[in-house]
Amino acid sequence: MVNHQAKDLKLSILDLATMYNGESAWQTLQNSTDLVQLADRLGYTRYWFAEHHNTKYQMSTSPDLLGAHAAAVSNNIRIGSGGIMLPNHSPLKVAENFSILEALHPGRIDLGIGRAPGTDGLTALALRRSREAVTTYDFPEQLDELLSFFSHAFPNDHPFKEITPSPDKHLIPDIYMLGSSNGGMQFASQHGLGFVFAAHISPQLAVPMLRAYRENFTPSSYMPEPKSVLSIIVIAAETDEEAEYLAGPAELQWVRWGTGEFQLAPPTLEEAKAHEYTPQEEDVRRENKGRFVIGSVEKVEKQLRKLAEDAMVDEIMILNMLTEKHTRHRSYELLADAFNLSPSNQ
């Protein structure tokens, strides 16, 4: 069993491209551009975009397009999807798109794959264009197709055997399964793929699922050894008090989501500070504590190293959710310094 040393912990970033404080779509995407360039300079390992649909305040609908832009404006950092929600897509088209990205930016592209639609049922229907596609669970077949397109390894009698997604058979990104339950872990371990667990969605399952992935991993042509990442919301600042204040909007937003309020704009710092939680909201807020790591950079560093050790991972992917650009950048700068990141250490 691999002995993961906390001192070697890598840090990465998950971006939802959220429109904070009434920002325009252009400004939000410019903020993502600036952040990926900062992360590149600081030595973060990878920068992924999520796939969400029918949201009023998130621009991350197309992680492949955003990834193409991010890779073009950066130099060293790996770029990818967190993830491509495969039920919304043709496996062939995903293979084509990510083969092109890999050709443009060799050795820097990741394909994170999700099993959920990343949206509501009506939007899923609009994406997939048939009710049968929405109600049929065929993810295992979709995943097999996708991997076969990349490996050019369809069975001889398969109707897709002669389809060529790319003229170059070596254009294969690093492939990861996303998960917040047992299902993603099983696909990742059985197919020999990387695994990223969303602890900000299911914090209580993160450690057991990530440990089970390593214990059950089957080597493959995609990955000879297991690669696992824990994703969680991290808000670091100079002091605990400042971090708690800066985390106010994210905590309030998760409380709103937990009580069925999905269409409100992301709270501002002032709104979060002035908000008086109802008893029901306080209960949800307490239940959400495991989704966050909040505090001074020293406190956050200790918690992340402990999480990584417990989960047997050597990489943490950070969902930041800070509403102010300068505090967002400062949080990542503090963490890069605490973990001794540098572009050459990737």
Rank of each mutant, 00 (worst) to 15 (best):
P343Y: 05
L16G: 08
F217W: 15
M85Q: 06
I77K: 11
N345Q: 14
P63I: 04
H191L: 06
S62T: 03
D240T: 01
S90L: 00
I109F: 00
E261D: 11
K161C: 08
D240R: 08
Q30P: 09
A274E: 13
P343V: 02
A25R: 13
L319V: 07
S231R: 08
V196C: 10
G248S: 04
K169A: 05
T136A: 02
L246W: 08
R328Y: 06
I100A: 01
D120Y: 10
G82A: 12
E215N: 15
M317P: 13
G112I: 01
E23G: 04
S24A: 05
N320G: 03
P155V: 06
D40G: 00
E271I: 02
P267M: 07
A250Q: 06
M19A: 08
R330V: 02
L246Y: 06
R214I: 15
L127K: 12
I109Q: 01
H52Y: 09
Q186N: 07
E276F: 05
I79R: 02
H89Y: 13
L35M: 04
R214A: 11
A39S: 08
L11P: 14
A116G: 03
P267S: 05
I235H: 04
D15V: 11
A153P: 05
H53D: 09
G194I: 13
L122G: 12
T55K: 13
Y332A: 03
R115K: 05
N54V: 05
A39D: 04
D110S: 02
E241K: 12
V313H: 00
Q346N: 14
W48P: 07
S331Y: 09
T278N: 13
G184D: 00
W26C: 02
I233L: 12
N75L: 10
T259P: 13
F262A: 10
L86G: 06
V2D: 12
L29T: 00
W48Y: 10
P266C: 03
S180I: 00
Q253L: 01
A338V: 07
T278I: 13
A95F: 00
Q280N: 11
I172L: 07
A188L: 02
P208I: 06
P219A: 07
E238P: 04
N3T: 14
Y277M: 03
L38W: 12
K299N: 12
T45D: 11
A70F: 10
Q37I: 09
E244Y: 00
A25I: 14
P87I: 14
